[in-house]
Structure formats: C-alpha cells, structure tokens
Design a protein around this nucleic acid. Sequence first.
DNA 1: TGCCAGGCCGGGT
DNA 2: ACCCGGCATGGC
Length: 223
Amino acid sequence: MGRSTTARMLRGFYEAAYAAYGPRHWWPGDSPLEVMVGAVLTQNTNWTNVERAIANLKSNSLLDWHRLDRMSHGELADLIRPAGYFNVKARRLKSLAAWVVETFDGDLEAMFSLSTASLRERLLAVNGIGRETADSILLYAGGHVTFVVDAYTARILRRHGLIDEQADYEEIKALFEDNLPADEALFNEYHALLVEVGKRCCRPRNPRCAQCPLDEFPHDPTP
DNA sequence: TGCCAGGCCGGGT
DNA sequence: ACCCGGCATGGC
C-alpha cells in the first residue's frame, strides 16, 4: 500500500473515531508521577482496578518517589493488590522509583528534559518498563511526541489490512510516526481513541461490531 | 462460567 | 531471533 494511501487511512481512522467518541481527555491522572505509576499498574489490567490501587496509594500519601523507594515491598504489594500481578508490579514500581530517585533525585522535570530518544532508551533499561509503558510515560506524563502502541492498536490495524500479522511494536509505531504530523495533541488523542475503538468493537472475540466507526474502511474480520 | 483487561520478563529452544 | 509460561484481581 502506498505511503499516501496509508496516511489517508490513518487520518481517516482518526477523524471517524473522533467523530464517534470525541476527545478522551487522557491520561486520567493528576500529576506526571501519578501517570507514570498508572502506566505500570495498568499493564495487562483493567483501568478500574488500577484506580483502586492508585486511590490506596494516594490515601496513604505514597505518590512520592522517595517514599515509594523506601517503603517495603510487602506493604506496597498489599496496597496495589486490586491492580493484579501485585508482587510483580510492586517490584516494578520500586525499580522505577529507585531509578528516578538515584538518577534525578525525584525531579521529573529534569528527567523529561532529556531528549525523547535518550529518555526512552533509559526508561527501557528499568526493570518492568517495556515499550508501551515507556512510550506512555513519555507522551502522557512528559508531553514528548512519541506514539504509543498497544494490543488494540495492533489488532485494529491488522483487521483493516494496514499491517501484517507479525508486525512488531517498533514497526507499528513507525507507521504512525512516519505518516502523521509530529503533534503531541494528535498522538495523545489518537492512541486514546484507538483504545476506545478497541474496547467497544475490536475485541478478540468480537471481530465486527454493529456500530464500528471504522466500518467505512476495508475490513478483514479475522482475529 | 470463562474470557478479558491500555504488558513485561526470563528461560528455553 | 522467536516462543512460552508466569504473574492475579475484578467485571461482565
């Protein structure tokens, strides 16, 4: 498929999804720190479960890098239990907190003043921060212009024939970044809209929903 | 009831 | 370079 065709489809997806669902107001979270914590907690997990975990941290005044760094694994795991994988995620949050404290003394402005490429690389080196989490942190906590890819994104693009079955994360990310204007607000809204489309009508067992905003685009209903 | 949710890591081929 | 099992709660 030609480059301009791809660009047109990606733009069309966005317009159709935005017309259907409007602005998503992402990321839900009161501060960059809270967004970062949420990005770890939501790994393969429903957001409503994450909200309970964050509420627990908040009510104990634990949305603080130094406190997260110092507190015990067990206490943290217990508080984030509703988010699932609580032992894994407690370890990951403490890895992130330790890194932020040791490297930036908890100063996120200093952290986000790094270049996108260099910060991404350094986030990926933190245990528990993979590509989606790193990109979510960069875009939604730091305002960096980087596209976030998730399972929904891959499934939607696959079903509409824009990528092949085995396209990997970086390839899908590049598809957006190479075919859209580098605009933070656009990347922010686009990813959030893809999640909304995915939740409503692009689930694994629901190859074609009744009111899909992307129905006007060529569609292959294979999972 | 089983399936699914805004992944990632580590070990095995 | 892939492939897979493990991790866990809560909603529908």
